[in-house]
């Protein structure tokens, strides 16, 4: 199989190239998380017509650094009644789960950390690690708020995984592949080839465009619920559960939860980008295509999705638990099923 990892091409398939392939996404993740935290602070402020942090560095751009330093300095407390092993393990499980997702994300035509042909499936599988970590953390904290948050989170993630998975399934049917790099290359050649607009094909694709639009919308909603973002942040609802499953965490371990949340945001944004927005392909066909532009487009598109996530967070209030379940099971699920059937039919006919 042809490799898409530029480092494997340069250094050969050895430890060095593997190490670089691991380190690079980690560095990217840390930089991205700092930018996303700043974005969160600034966008929330701007939406409320405030200026946001302005003191640390010019226009407050060093604020996230200061916050990370603050978090690292904090005392690491383990509650007296906690299950030490699980309590200490939970942040690592969550972070590892979300970071493992980066392995198959095609950053560019020439760089996928690990090219496997069931990338989409893999992302979903490791994404489920987050649930384990959250339940572990919530249960081991020996705190009823943490436990409640963890239970809510588990129920929410499981119910939203299903419409999310159906969307991915539809996309896989449409693309005839689970390979993220292949799905991306299929959509090459301009934005009208994106799966958001029915994917590549002749004019017959027109009648599935509404369904693909709907699918991307469903995935957007489901991904918000999976990453525990507002309006689906009931697992950490401040006003009812203090902070939900990470109530008892402090210092570095809290920072891990924090990073994991932002990393999850990026993972779902990346999936959405790859599956519906054409990944690293340029929206203008061959214009502005190529390796570096590929990275640029990919990050731009993913960041735009992250921006929408932040934007939604500061627009919508939190939904109730019953509303959340209603939306997941009675709205998203039937809609995604209908879309799935329509797309399968389209695939059979054409």
């Amino acid at each position: 199989m042809e490799t898409f990892n530029v480092f494997e091409k340069i250094f050969g398939l050895n430890f060095l190239s593997a190490l670089i392939s691991v380190i690079l996404p980690l560095v990217f993740l840390i930089i991205y998380a700092l930018i996303a935290i700043l974005g969160e602070l600034k966008i929330s402020a701007w939406i409320q017509e405030r200026l946001g942090p302005m003191r640390t560095g010019p226009y407050g751009i060093l604020q996230p650094l200061a916050e990370v330093v603050k978090l690292i300095q904090k005392e690491d407390i383990v509650p007296a009644g906690a299950n030490r092993l699980l309590f200490n393990l939970a942040p690592y499980v969550i972070f590892a789960g979300s970071f493992a997702g980066f392995a198959v994300i095609p950053f560019s035509a020439a760089f996928v950390p690990a090219e496997i042909n069931i990338g989409l499936f893999y992302v979903f599988a490791v994404g489920a690690f987050a649930v384990i970590g959250i339940v572990m953390g919530g249960w081991a904290s020996n705190n009823k708020y943490s436990l409640l948050g963890a239970m809510r989170s588990a129920s929410q993630m499981i119910s939203y995984e299903i419409p999310g998975a159906l969307v991915i399934l539809s996309a896989a049917v449409l693309a005839n592949s689970l390979d993220m790099q292949k799905i991306t290359t299929l959509q090459d050649g301009g934005f009208w080839n994106w799966f958001l607009f029915g994917g590549p094909g002749n004019w017959t694709k027109i009648w599935i465009i509404p369904f693909t639009l709907l699918l991307s919308l469903i995935y957007m909603i489901a991904s918000l619920a999976e990453t525990n973002r507002t309006p689906f942040d009931i697992p950490e609802g401040e006003s009812e559960l203090v902070a939900g499953y990470h109530t008892e965490y402090s210092g570095m371990k809290f920072a891990m939860f924090f990073f994991a949340e932002y990393s999850n945001m990026f993972i779902v944004a990346a999936i959405l980008t790859v599956v519906f927005l054409g990944g690293w392909t340029s929206p203008f066909g061959t214009f502005m295509g190529g390796f570096w532009w590929g990275i640029f487009w990919f990050i731009l598109k993913a960041m735009f999705i992250v921006f929408i996530q932040i934007w939604l967070r500061w627009t919508l209030p939190r939904v109730r638990v019953d509303q959340l379940m209603y939306l997941g099971w009675k709205v998203l699920l039937p809609f995604s099923l209908v879309c799935f059937i329509v797309i399968s039919l389209y695939r059979i006919i054409y």
Binding site: I47, W311, W314, T315, L316
Partner: peptide, 28 residues
């Protein structure tokens, strides 16, 4: 109902977008 949800969310997002670019009231 579903349409109202969707539509009102878009409305809300339009309002917050306006505020995003509005003049800030903070006095430093």
């Amino acid at each position: 109902n579903v349409w109202t949800w969707f539509y009102t969310i878009l409305l809300g997002m339009r309002i917050t977008l306006k505020h995003l670019f509005a003049k800030k009231v903070t006095i430093q």
